[in-house]
């Protein structure tokens, strides 16, 4: 059996991370949670997970800043980051992708299945 992939989930809303953790662990992923951007960045550098699910509106350090920081760090800059946010303006999406995210999912309009498909794709 293949080794489980590690996913870093950076999300501050308990009610939401609870759901994402349930859905990911059910599919056999290991989930590491960070409830703010700064913690997320620390964990990212230490654990070097296979993929990051990143919210934008976060305490301490927001998602955009998080992306800027990892872009500068060669050891982690190739880890795929999927933005998972309800900020849905075109300008937000453009900014996220420009800062190096591989995809941008809007929480309200992306179903669990769609999100899992994307995760699978970027982990392949």
């Amino acid at each position: 059996m293949a080794i489980s992939k590690n996913i870093l989930l950076v999300e501050d809303e308990e009610i939401l991370y609870d759901i994402y953790i349930k859905m990911l662990t059910e599919r056999g992923y290991n989930v590491i949670l960070a409830n703010n951007g700064k913690k997320g960045y620390k964990i990212l550098r230490k654990e070097k997970p296979d993929l990051v699910l990143l919210d934008i509106l976060l305490p301490v350090m927001d998602g955009f800043m998080f992306l800027k920081k990892i872009k500068k760090d060669a050891s982690i800059k190739n880890i795929p980051v999927i933005i998972l946010s309800n900020l849905g303006q075109d300008s937000d999406i453009a900014k996220g992708l420009e800062l190096g995210a591989v995809d941008y999912c809007i929480k309200n309009s992306t179903s669990i299945d769609e999100l899992l498909e994307k995760i699978k794709k970027y982990l392949a």
Binding site: E13, I15, L16, I19, Y20, K22, M23, N86, K107, N108, S111, I112
Partner: peptide, 12 residues
């Protein structure tokens, strides 16, 4: 956020 939670929970 609450709407996302309702939607995602029902999807689960």
């Amino acid at each position: 956020t609450p709407l996302s939670a309702i939607k995602l929970s029902s999807e689960l």
